[in-house]
Design a protein around this nucleic acid. Sequence first.
DNA 1: TTGAAAGCGCTAACAC
DNA 2: GTGTTAGCGCTTTCAA
Lengths: 332, 332
Amino acid sequence: VAEAAGVSVATVSRVLNHQPQVDPARRERVLEAIARLGYRRDAVARNLRRRSTRVWGLVISDIQNPFFTALIRGVQDRAEQEGFAVILLNSDEDTDRERRCLELMAEERAAGVLISPASETESAFRPLLDPAIPVVLIDRSTTDRDVDLVRIDNERGAYDGTRHLLEEGYRRVACISGPLHTTTGRTRFEGYRRAVEEAGTIDPDLVRHTDFKTPGGHEAAIDLFRSPSPPDAVIVMNNLMTEGALTALRDLGLAMPGDVGVVGFDELSWAALLDPPLTTVGQPVRELGLAAADLLARRCAGDMEDHPRTVTLAPRLVVRGSSTRVRAPHHR
Amino acid sequence: VAEAAGVSVATVSRVLNHQPQVDPARRERVLEAIARLGYRRDAVARNLRRRSTRVWGLVISDIQNPFFTALIRGVQDRAEQEGFAVILLNSDEDTDRERRCLELMAEERAAGVLISPASETESAFRPLLDPAIPVVLIDRSTTDRDVDLVRIDNERGAYDGTRHLLEEGYRRVACISGPLHTTTGRTRFEGYRRAVEEAGTIDPDLVRHTDFKTPGGHEAAIDLFRSPSPPDAVIVMNNLMTEGALTALRDLGLAMPGDVGVVGFDELSWAALLDPPLTTVGQPVRELGLAAADLLARRCAGDMEDHPRTVTLAPRLVVRGSSTRVRAPHHR
DNA sequence: TTGAAAGCGCTAACAC
DNA sequence: GTGTTAGCGCTTTCAA
């Protein structure tokens, strides 16, 4: 093509790949020809020849959930720095769909895969990927442990949030939990249990396990607060359920923090807009994405010892008015 | 590879591509060998040979904005149906970055590109893409008109929202507008102007142009309501500025709908959680994504007349308590 | 219905 | 430093 610059294809290739040993004059001629002809290197052919791509797959279950949105942001920022493009795949929390996403990435010879797994076991999806494709698990672990994992200390976050309510003097602290068959659901529930048991014994009537979705949170809250001996506080274990629970409290006419103290999970952009503003267990989600991408980039570069790593980030309790009987002082 | 099934590569290829003229017995043998060897077709080589990919590029400016999130969802749902994977590119509202995204898609030989353009002129980016790559513009048009476009009737949405406030008896209806150099900012402002001028004359003191961001909305609202003759209502022209404006109103101690009537733009998941719930001009964003993907899929299939099409979807005013002096009746 | 062979656009050995 | 050439793994004529 651009040999119409009077050189061989090899030289053009060398210019394109910034190899130093090209004569400056010839390099100029090549560059000029490329510009003149509007030539663009074919990445498909390049990938085939090099037997590698610069594409990552990112498999998540719900693009509309702000948690994943922040995660994508983090992943994408680092991916761009490292020169990778990101294919977004939607597993919709379904193991079959997840498997198809992974098969697709295997066929496309993705350079790496980041996944927030719906599957319980790593073996359920690992064989689908060519062994050469590195995988980083995000936020949820699997039963097999021989894979990189980036996560948030959910147990700690739930513990801190629950304990905060107890310290504020709430006596019957309820928990709207995710399903126990997910690692996030389970570990957050364990944090709640630990805090509650430190202060006495756990009351099963104060616990509702639901599905991490908005309607689930709504129903669980209605159910809890209509019971004969309702709670005086509640911690809700993710952002969507928190939305549902807050709607329920409003519908029931219960006021925060007097009638009920509330702690949500995940930072919500509008948490501070509520009256009173909502106390939440904030997760460093963008950082989670960055860390996952960091790890994957290093795996792709091959400059890491072989054994799998786990990176754990700390959540941060942000106390606002919804959980403090004496109104929290304003922080600047 | 799978010729260890005793047939030629050509036959294997035919099986893989579901071509009918293969002997059933041989087909079985091939399938069996594929399963046994765990073979996966190399999509990179396939794409090279076929001179086409099954990948779309989706270029947006802010993954964390729920508007784009819903858009992505729509695009991805249809893309999956049509057998395309979606690469997510981040232009960050920057024309240079946008250009690089487009160049990347050109190199990767994407089958099509969906873009919510930061550039004003189509000519700014069209030459970057091989003329064979179809493009669909989303939500914002460019000065050149020879390209497919999917949009929402923003003028109408802003008009409906403003007129609603006037009909509720508000006399000084302010507008927190996006920048006039964007199509969405401009057309929404024009809708506002039309409604206001129908009822009298426009008062420039009631208009603030800012940047579609949360802090911008906050500052604009503070500025408006601290002025000597403040408005008694405001329409805010996108979701992020609405968040900022609501924070400002709360900080100023102004109550909706009494002190001030408020209409937001874009549906917000938590609009109904506020007290009173927020009236908004809802946009069918997921449908916008679906429509864009539909159009692109048809362009990729080549089964369309050549001339560019524009698809316009209608917004829908959702009246809640923040804009109705007599409390809106509850809808089921 | 099947197989042999060409070739997609590029990079990397190798020879000069 | 530079050119020649082989092939990456697939699909697709073409001939059998």
